[in-house]
Amino acid sequence: MITSRTEATFLSPIVESRRWVAGVTFPDDRPLLNVSQAAPADPPPLGLRQALAEAALHQDDAHLYGPVLGRDGLRSALAEQMSSHYDATISPDQIGITSGCNQAFAATIAALCGEGDEVIIPVPWYFNHKMWLDLSGVTARPLQVGDDMLPDPAAAEALITPRTKAILLVTPNNPTGAEYPEGLLRAYFDLAQSRGLALIVDETYRDFDSRSGPPHALFQQTDWDQTLIHLYSFSKAYRLTGHRVGAIAAAPARLFEMEKFLDTVTICPSQLGQIGAQWGIHNLQSWLAGERAEILDRKQAILDAFPLLASRGWRLLGCGAYFAYVEHPFDLPASQIAQKLVTEASILMLPGTMFMPEGDQSAERQFRIAFANVDAVGIRELFSRLSQFQP
Rank of each mutant, 00 (worst) to 15 (best):
I2E: 08
R5T: 01
L11P: 00
V15L: 04
R19A: 08
R19F: 06
P27N: 08
D29Y: 14
P44T: 01
P45G: 01
Q50W: 10
D60V: 15
D61S: 09
R71D: 14
S91H: 06
S91I: 00
Q94Y: 04
Q94W: 06
I95W: 00
T98W: 04
F127H: 13
W132Q: 14
L133F: 08
A140E: 08
V145W: 00
G146Y: 09
A156F: 14
E157Q: 15
E157D: 14
K165R: 15
I167S: 10
L169K: 03
N173T: 02
V201R: 14
F208T: 08
F208Q: 04
D209A: 12
D209S: 14
S210W: 11
S210D: 14
H216Y: 08
L218D: 15
F219L: 07
Q220F: 12
D223G: 15
K236C: 03
A250D: 10
A251M: 09
E257D: 09
M258Y: 00
P269T: 14
P269I: 02
Q274V: 03
G276K: 04
I281F: 12
H282V: 03
L288T: 02
G290W: 03
E291H: 03
E294C: 04
R298L: 02
D304I: 11
P307A: 11
A310G: 15
G313L: 05
L317V: 11
Y322S: 07
Y322D: 10
Y322P: 00
A324R: 03
A324S: 12
Y325D: 04
E327F: 05
E327A: 15
F330G: 07
A334Q: 11
I337N: 15
I337A: 14
L348G: 05
M349L: 11
L350I: 12
M354V: 05
P357I: 07
D360Q: 13
S362E: 15
A363M: 02
E364F: 09
R365Y: 13
R365K: 15
F367C: 05
R368P: 00
I369C: 11
A370Y: 03
V374Q: 07
A376M: 10
F383E: 12
Q388W: 00
F389P: 03
